[in-house]
Amino acid sequence: MALVRLESIVKRFGALEVLKSINLIVKKGEIVAIIGRSGSGKSTLLRCVNALEPVQGGLIEVDGIEVTAASADHNALRARVGMVFQSFNLFPHLNVERNIMLALKLVRKTPKPEAQDIAVRMLEKVGLADKRLAYPDELSGGQQQRVAIARSLAMEPTLMLFDEITSALDPELVGDVLRVLEGLARDGMTMMLVTHEMNFARNVANRVVFMHEGRIHEDGPARETLTEPKTDELKSFLSAVLH
């Protein structure tokens, strides 16, 4: 069953065409790693899926909602599509628990005690139950990122988008975050992730999409695509990132 459907997506920033007719279908339960050089359009593609970026052409459908329709309720869509950013973007004025509870209360209208239970459960899931009352600036980057994941998961998303979530982390903190993603993968969460972690893409993702100059250049099963790239562009990209 297709959870995400992109048809001939065109995205421009002024005169610059960043996405050139992208077609992509993501099925329920799939874990799609999107790789490519910086500037290839991979983050932009991800941001189009939950309408953080408007597109100039094409059709986007997520979980039965036509995102590109003029009447689309983007807030309702985003309440069901989680997104985690490279720079964490926790709310600095709220402690960890209230970071997680805010959208539950405002968007889902969850009563406070229930929202609190959910926050505790989500924090246990990412291994930070003891940080419930800490403020974001008291946490390490890796811990902040795990809280950001917990905050998204609390909304019970049907799809999770991860935008280079380990790029801003010290190397020794990356492992903790990736372990959380592995846990999500085991739970069957549908995920699209822009990543530079090729080992993670190979071992956890079941599909790899390689983007090059605004187009999907290769698209296939993760292991195969990464070990036997078909195009020269992917070959040269992989040799560049793997040294």
């Binding site: 939950n50 953080l52 983007h74 807030n75 309702a76 869509l77 985003r78 309440a79 069901r80 989680g82 997104m83 950013f85 720079s87 973007n89 926790l90 709310f91 600095p92 004025h93 805010l102 959208a103 405002l106 968007v107 905050r151 998204s152 909304m155």
Partner: peptide, 28 residues
């Protein structure tokens, strides 16, 4: 701007993003 975006990504309305995310930080 990323704070507005974080609120948006959680499905919060523009008004909620302003009153619960941006305004408290601006007051500070």
């Amino acid at each position: 701007k990323r704070q507005w975006e974080a609120g948006a990504a959680l499905g919060m309305t523009y008004r909620h993003r302003f009153t619960h995310v941006v305004l408290p930080q601006a007051v500070r």
